[in-house]
Amino acid sequence: MFKSIAAAVLGLSLSLGVWAKTEATQELPPEIKALRWQESGKGEIADKASVKIPSGYAFLGEADTSKLLQAFGNPPSSDHFLIAPKSLDWFAVFSYDDTGYVKDDEKIDADDLLKSMQSGDKAGNEQRKKLGLEALYTDGWQVPPHYDTATKRLEWGLRLRGESGEKNVNYTSRILGRSGVMTATLVSDTATLAQNTDEFKKVLAGFDYNSGQTYAEFKNGDKVAAIGLGALVLGGAAAVATKKGLWGAIAGFLAAGWKIIAAAAVALFAGIGKLFGRKKAAE
C-alpha cells in the first residue's frame, strides 16, 4: 500500500537564511523556526537513502516534517522527510515504500492513467472532508509520466485544483531501488514550476540509496513487486497540494498544539484496482 503525501502550501515569500520575513514584515512564530532544520551534510531518509543538503537549503526529519505539513493544512503523515530552499519557494517530500523490486519494462499509457486518477477524486475527497480539508480535483498532466532507464526515475507532473479555485502542481519522482521505491514529491506553484523543477532535479542529483539498496544490486531471491510502472503513477495520485494563505497556515500550525497525530492515508484504491483488473483480463 502506498503512503499518501498530502503536500502543502506553495509560493511562500520568506527571506533567505532566517525563515522569518513574511507579509507586512511580520515574523514567523518561533515554533516554526524552532523546527530542527538541518542545514548541512546529508539528510537521512528512512534508513534506506540520503540526500545531500546544498548550501541555501535545509532538511527536516520525520517528526518535524509531519508538523510542518500539518501547519499547511494537510492530513497528518508519518515516515516522510522534507528538503527545501530556505526561501520556501518550493519544497520536496520524500517517502519510502518497501514494495519490492519493481520491474521497469511496462509501457505507460498516460491517458488511461489520468482517467483512473480522476475517477478516484470522489473517494479521495470524501476522506479529505472527514479530515476537515478542502476538496481537491485532478485537472490533468502538467508533465506526462515518463521513465528514465539510466536514472531509474519515473516522473510526472499533475495539475490540481482546489474547490475554491486555487491551482497548483505536484511534480513526483519515483526512484526505483532494490527492495522498494523512494518517492520525492515537489510542491510548486504552476507559474514557477519550470524553474523549481530544475532546482529540484539538481537536489535529486545528490540523492543516493545506501549501499546494498540500489536497483542494480538486485539478486535472485529478492522480493519482486506485484506492480509495475503504471501502478506507481496511480499510487502517486494521492500526492496532493493545497493552497492557503501564509497566516492561515500559521494559525493551523499553532492550533495543532504540536501534537503528532496518527497517520491518515488517502489512496486511490479504485484506480489501482481497475489497473490490476485490466492486467488480469489481459493475461
Rank of each mutant, 00 (worst) to 15 (best):
L28M: 15
I53T: 08
K86Q: 15
I32T: 05
F94G: 02
A58W: 06
E62Q: 05
L88N: 09
S50M: 10
D79W: 10
T25Y: 10
F91T: 09
D89S: 14
S66M: 01
I32L: 13
V93R: 09
G73F: 04
K52V: 15
S77Q: 13
E44Q: 14
L35H: 11
A84C: 13
G56S: 06
G56W: 13
A46D: 11
W90F: 10
D47R: 13
D64V: 04
L35A: 11
I45N: 00
S77I: 08
W37V: 00
D98H: 05
T25N: 12
S87D: 14
G43H: 00
V93S: 13
V51E: 02
A92T: 11
G61P: 00
L88T: 12
I45C: 00
L60P: 07
F94H: 04
S40A: 15
G43Y: 00
K86V: 09
N74H: 03
T65N: 01
A24E: 12
H80E: 10
E62L: 01
A71D: 07
L88K: 12
V93I: 13
N74T: 12
T65H: 00
S78D: 14
E62R: 02
S87W: 06
L35R: 13
S87K: 11
P76D: 05
S77W: 06
A84D: 05
S95G: 14
D79Y: 10
A49M: 01
W37G: 03
S78A: 15
P29Y: 04
F91H: 14
Q26T: 11
P85D: 06
A84W: 08
E44H: 07
F91Q: 13
E31K: 11
F81T: 06
E27H: 15
V51F: 01
I45P: 01
P85N: 03
P85T: 05
Y96G: 00
A63W: 10
S95P: 03
K42W: 04
G56A: 08
P54V: 07
P54E: 04
A58R: 12
A46L: 08
K48R: 12
G56V: 10
A63N: 15
D98Y: 05
D98N: 03
S40R: 15
D97S: 14
P29D: 07
Q70M: 12
S77A: 13
L28G: 03
S55T: 14
T25M: 08
L60K: 08
I45W: 00
A58L: 09
I83H: 04
A63D: 15
Q38A: 02
K48D: 03
L60A: 08
S78Y: 10
L28N: 05
P29Q: 05
I83N: 02
P29G: 07
L82G: 01
V51K: 03
F59M: 05
